[in-house]
Simulated scan of single mutants.
Amino acid sequence: MKTTHVAFQGGTKDGSTADYDNLDAESNLLFDAAFEPEELYERTTETVVVDGIERVVYRLKV
Rank of each mutant, 00 (worst) to 15 (best):
D19R: 09
E54F: 13
V62T: 15
E36H: 11
A33Y: 12
L23Q: 02
T47M: 12
E38W: 10
A34R: 09
A7N: 07
E42Q: 12
S16K: 07
T44C: 13
N28H: 06
A34L: 13
D14Q: 04
G10T: 05
D14T: 00
S16P: 01
D19W: 09
T12L: 13
D24I: 11
E36P: 07
A7Y: 04
A25H: 09
L30R: 06
D32W: 14
V6H: 00
E38G: 14
A33I: 07
T44I: 10
V49K: 12
A25D: 12
V56F: 14
L60G: 03
A33V: 07
Y41H: 02
V49D: 15
F35W: 14
V6W: 00
D21M: 08
F31N: 03
R59W: 04
Y41A: 00
V48G: 14
E42C: 10
A34C: 12
S27M: 06
R59G: 10
T3C: 07
M1K: 15
D32L: 11
S27C: 10
S27Q: 08
D32N: 10
D24H: 07
A34N: 07
T4G: 06
V62F: 09
I53S: 07
T17Q: 05
N22Q: 08
D32C: 09
R59P: 09
K13I: 01
L40H: 04
V57W: 02
R43C: 05
A25P: 10
D32Q: 11
K61W: 13
T47R: 11
G52P: 06
V62Y: 08
E36S: 14
A33E: 08
E42G: 10
D19S: 11
T3D: 09
N28R: 08
G52F: 06
N28Y: 05
V49N: 15
L30P: 02
N22F: 07
V48K: 15
Y20M: 04
T47G: 12
L29R: 00
Y58N: 02
V62L: 14
K2C: 09
K61P: 02
T12W: 05
G10Y: 04
G10D: 05
V48A: 11
V56L: 15
T4A: 08
P37I: 06
N22W: 07
V57S: 02
E46M: 15
D32A: 08
T45M: 12
F8W: 00
E36L: 15
K2Q: 14
F31P: 01
R59F: 07
G15P: 03
G11T: 06
Y41W: 03
F31W: 08
D24E: 13
